[in-house]
Design a protein around this nucleic acid. Structure first.
Lengths: 194, 194
DNA sequence: GTTTTCATGATACGACTGTATCATCAAAAG
DNA sequence: CTTTTGATGATACAGTCGTATCATGAAAAC
């Protein structure tokens, strides 16, 4: 319990003040515990950061699952693509927080590749394959093209998310761009989820 | 001259070890000058970081211009879109370096918004409008859709760039995905840039 | 009842950070 | 020739960082 509280404090700081100012003392203060306690549960700063990344991944997975479930059962393949991508896009406070923190971790791992070894590409790869399967099942593309389309859609969503966080457009505008492309792919019938 | 050398040293460190480890002492050592000198030319750390961002912008602009010019004169509108987006995509060492450093600045500005005030959205906004105009001129979309398509293409390119830096795919694979989408837009005739 | 284990606190150490101060040297201005 | 100005060096200061050490209390094991 204590461990998770501290992890939550880390994510809170990473979101508001950035990962680089999430020192062990700052995390301890935010969680209302002593510095020693942070050291106790996570042996080193790397341990703390790694655990935070794992917690963040859980939060994103839960959100995606929740979004897909909200589309009604059973969801169509096209609906699952809709639900997944719109869950990732930073449109409300929760998704903004998750996306922003992920961005912070992203550059941290870029500069310190030994932090997250293989854990890096596993998640997005799996997500991409999942999307490719749904696109194929929806009959929206040939098996040969579905992987390319899935990669494009995920990259598009991530890029749109970056532009939202950067203040270039708001969540609604980004959602409109995403919907435009999804509608062209699925033929504008696959109900706008959420 | 001296000022520019120091700025180059900053960008070199930002690329290899990340922006957060680009301390003034480290930059001074990399540039082969004293710490005092870095303070002299840029009054504060913010000044140094801001100047580095400006230099980086110059490098990207120069690269895009070079890529477009390499398409032959006069380039077609479709060719300019090709040239611009493939110049941004991290396919060689120079573009990898630029993209990686931009990513570092991106999260830094996200966490410290007062660093780059208005300089933030101006550049990508202009780029997006430029692309929209070219798409419209190429007759590839209605004026109403061209803005949406341009935003999508830029976001797609940025997202693909992130996946390349993250090691999820290499530059060639990302280029293939980008070409796939551009070919669908322009009708597969607009010669493969570069 | 004693011993071991888990959980927590207080504090110290050395390294690093950005910034500031004082001094020096060369060249240009007057 | 003197004075001012631009460029450079050496060093100091106060703060923060991650980590380590020593100590204490409570609960569980035996």
């Amino acid at each position: 319990m204590r461990r998770r509280e501290i992890g939550a404090a880390l994510l809170r700081i990473a979101d508001t003040k950035g990962l680089q100012s999430a020192s062990m003392r700052e995390v301890a203060a935010e969680a209302g515990v002593s510095l020693r306690l942070v050291q106790y549960y996570f042996q080193s700063k790397n341990g703390l950061l790694l655990a935070g990344l794992a917690y963040l991944g859980e939060q994103l997975s839960a959100r995606v699952e929740r979004h897909i479930r909200a589309l009604g059962t059973p969801p169509t393949p096209a609906g699952m693509v809709y639900g997944t991508l719109t869950a990732i896009l930073p449109t409300d406070e929760e998704s903004r927080r998750i996306t922003r923190t992920y961005a912070a971790y992203y550059t941290l791992v870029l500069a310190e590749p030994d932090l997250a070894t293989e854990h890096g590409t596993a998640y997005p790869d799996a997500l991409e394959r999942f999307l490719a399967r749904q696109i194929e099942a929806a009959g929206a593309a040939s098996p040969a093209d579905s992987a390319t389309i899935a990669a494009g859609l995920l990259a598009l969503t991530n890029g749109l998310g970056s532009s939202v966080l950067g203040g270039q457009r708001d969540g609604e505008a980004a959602l409109a761009v995403l919907r435009y492309h999804l509608d062209r792919l699925f033929g504008a019938v696959a109900g706008g989820g959420q």
